[in-house]
Design a protein around this nucleic acid. Structure first.
Lengths: 95, 95
DNA sequence: TCTATGTATCTAAATGTTTCGATTTGTTGA
DNA sequence: TCAACAAATCGAAACATTTAGATACATAGA
């Protein structure tokens, strides 16, 4: 676990972080003790449900969020390991 | 100096890091003792000069690279402060 | 001053992303 | 089983990014 990221994964993570809504979604998930339901996110932002779902999907694809299904609900938490790996990739760029 | 990044700047930096050529350009600049001429970058990658110039511009706009003109040459170095700020922005996401 | 060279800009085509509304899928509870 | 709900997917329009070739700009050296 916690192996170095390859350039593809860095690209994916960077792209996922390259949208203000997605950054806000991550911040919101983190704030809720790291757990959040999709519906709750939809209520927080002025975006359509399908748009939120699309953004969340990208965050999950980049492994920045982890999804868990609970019946008809889904809950998300921040994948701290992924952020750790990303930061470790960037660290050499600041000596 | 070294103040917290706002969400716009985070977005810009993330987007700049969201392309494999740009990541390779940063790595190349870092490798050359942190200094590199544009022409040298052009020689390293199979991309048109105008395309490299476009990518470098984005890295400069995101303040990840700093450009210095020397006559008709340009030299670039990595802005370690920007990477530091970016990492500090991300740190709360991995406790 | 003129030419060659290094870098930046412009234009346009191809490709990718964002967004919404509509629909689909899957699950709960009546 | 069926209605209600949560989330995901589809389709399409609007918008942004990537790329190369052509061109412009700026400087060094003849």
């Amino acid at each position: 676990m916690n192996k170095p990221l390859d350039i593809r994964q860095v690209e994916k993570i960077s792209k996922a972080l390259g949208d203000p809504w997605r950054i806000r979604i991550i911040e919101a998930v983190l704030k809720e003790q790291g757990w959040m339901q999709c519906n709750c996110i939809v209520g927080m932002f002025d975006l359509a449900q399908s748009t939120i779902s699309h953004h969340v999907k990208q965050l999950i694809d980049a492994e920045l969020l982890i999804a868990e299904k609970e019946g008809r609900h889904a809950r998300y938490r921040v994948n701290e390991e992924a952020f750790n790996s990303y930061i470790r990739f960037l660290a050499p760029f600041c000596q």
